[in-house]
């Protein structure tokens, strides 16, 4: 493995930024913004899954509640859009603290199920609390203003919201590459050892959880304003599932893979609006092909090729007992363990 110059890394970022800047001129701007925020959502999920080894199946709670909070703030409070986004994100954080506190004590599939359980409760509250949330009809026609500027054009709003989303992306990057992020990875790989080394693992995991939830909340808030709509569907378990799918499709543990996953899923969904007869067949087919053919996810496979210089390196298949993941793939979520 030869060391690459740092300039290459920055070239990569520059390219990504250029892509983000020209995106609304290539595809429909509303769709472009959706890709940016769903990508952020998937990055939030990967932050937890790839770097803490925790699969959350309840992130829709943060995405949805932030969307509603931002929508209500903008509609009833008449606040400008960055303030609404901030309020939405804060609500997600406030919810994440108790939910995270209770959930991080479990691992693997149990963690996934506890987060799902809390998300279903949030879903229930949003549906029932009609006077505030509008129930299943949701909050429609959310206004978006900034210092009296007209942000009704989708393209204008894209550029107005992009910096906020980029803050989220940069934040995620900083977290992963900070000492804190490295401790998270250490905990993921061996929690007992990390604790023995003196790290308060629960506190680290909780902070990781809250950060992830805040990014999901940031994405959800912008999504609500971008769509001018907060809907019950945002808080449904299928939304959590969609974010997880984007993450896996992109590549778990790659951080940016979720963006690629978001591109695939959202373009597919958009394309299918005119081909309803293919709805499930196409979605299922694409997922199956990616899972079977590109096990590291799209970005994960690309990185793997790049690193090893050859197509998909053999994945060990030694039967069930020897089931160990290829170390270069994902951290194994350990469903067989029942937490502590």
């Amino acid at each position: 493995m030869s060391v690459r110059p740092v300039t290459v890394r920055y070239a990569g970022y520059a390219l990504a930024l250029i892509a983000a800047l020209i995106l609304p001129h290539i595809i429909y701007p509303v769709l472009a913004l959706n890709i940016i925020v769903w990508g952020l959502f998937a990055v939030a999920v990967d932050l937890l899954l790839g770097f803490s080894g925790l699969l959350s199946f309840g992130h829709a709670a943060f995405w949805g509640s932030a969307a509603y909070a931002a929508g209500i703030a903008a509609t009833r409070g008449g606040v400008s859009f960055p303030v609404a986004v901030l309020i939405g994100t804060l609500v997600a954080i406030l919810l994440a603290i108790p939910i995270g506190y209770l959930s991080i004590r479990r691992q693997g599939i149990y963690f996934a199920m506890v987060t799902l359980a809390f998300a279903q409760m949030i879903y229930f509250v949003i549906n029932q609390w009609r006077s505030v949330t509008g129930g299943e009809n949701g909050i429609q026609g959310i206004p978006r203003t900034l210092l009296g500027l007209d942000l009704s054009s989708a393209t204008t709003f894209y550029y107005a919201a992009l910096p906020l989303a980029l803050i989220g992306y940069v934040f995620a990057f900083r977290v992963v590459h900070s000492p804190f992020g490295h401790v998270l990875v250490a905990i993921r790989d061996n929690e007992t050892r990390a604790r023995a080394l003196g790290y308060p693992t629960h506190r680290y995991k909780l902070i990781g959880f809250v950060i992830s939830a805040s990014l999901a909340g940031l994405g959800g808030s912008i999504y609500a304003l971008g769509q001018r709509l907060a809907d019950l569907e945002y808080a449904r378990w299928t939304t959590s599932g969609l974010a997880v799918i984007m993450t896996i499709l992109g590549g778990v543990g790659t951080l940016w893979g979720g963006v690629i996953g978001a591109v695939v899923v959202l373009l597919l969904r958009d394309w299918l609006t005119t081909r309803p007869e293919l709805f499930g067949v196409a979605t299922g087919g694409v997922f199956a092909v990616i899972v079977l053919g590109f096990r590291r996810g799209i970005l994960g496979t690309a990185l793997h090729w790049y690193r090893s210089g050859r197509p998909d390196a053999p994945i060990r298949r030694r039967g069930l007992a020897a089931a160990r993941p290829d170390p270069t793939t994902v951290p194994r979520v350990k469903p067989e363990k029942g937490g502590r």
Partner: peptide, 28 residues
């Protein structure tokens, strides 16, 4: 170390994706 390549490829993938989008984005 992996980071440099990771992000580099991320950039390429993003721009490639953008090109794909151009091809099928308006597919209504």
């Amino acid at each position: 170390k992996g980071l440099t390549r990771r992000t580099f490829l991320g950039g390429i993938a993003a721009s490639a994706a953008a090109a794909i989008l151009a091809a099928c984005g308006s597919g209504s």
